[in-house]
Amino acid sequence: MHTEASVDSAQPLPGDFAIWIFIFAELVVFGVLFGAYAFARSTHVELFNASQLTLNRAYGFANTLILVTSSYFVARATQSIKAGRGTACGNWLAAALGLGGMFLVLKLVEFHQDFAQGISLSTNLFYMFYLALTFFHFMHVVMGMAILAVVTYKAYAGRYSAANHTGVETGGSYWHMVDLVWIILFALVYVIH
């Protein structure tokens, strides 16, 4: 364990270092949003608990399963390209993109139902946070998918190899970040009360 780990653990962050600057900045942004939600709730506990019950937790649950699986596919894509299998890498990425699309569709259905009930940013403080946080995350899924789409195209075009796979790791790292913040967001907004 000790010898192997010490060799292994000397690696730099996967992908381009610049994406990590961005990921850390994004994590700070989401961290501030989560903190703001939690502290806003602490002064309106009843309101938050009551409003949270009106959400359909099943949507959040399904979307978490989808995004976690999508993130897993991206991890497999990275392993494939490290083994030099470009087409397999492309297939994993395409599957991950498909799941990203499913996430967006499901979230739009949920938004549609919210709006059909007349819920808006002005309804109350809980819905303001719920809509703002999930929409802000929604935009990150869109951006993550745009990045993955480019990486997928390049993977199928044979632009990556076992020796050159920084691009896959770069795009993948961002996608994992989108997954990571959703896991926290799901627990915070849909479940914890």
Binding site: A25, V32, A36, A40, L121, S122, L125, M128, A132
Partner: peptide, 25 residues
């Protein structure tokens, strides 16, 4: 303006120093 701007404005403008920190780095 609608009062939710008090929250959204506070949270997101509190993040506005980030690009300047990045500029320094």
């Amino acid at each position: 303006a609608p009062s939710y701007w008090i929250w959204l404005g506070s949270i997101f403008s509190a993040l506005e120093p980030i690009p300047f920190i990045l500029l320094i780095a």
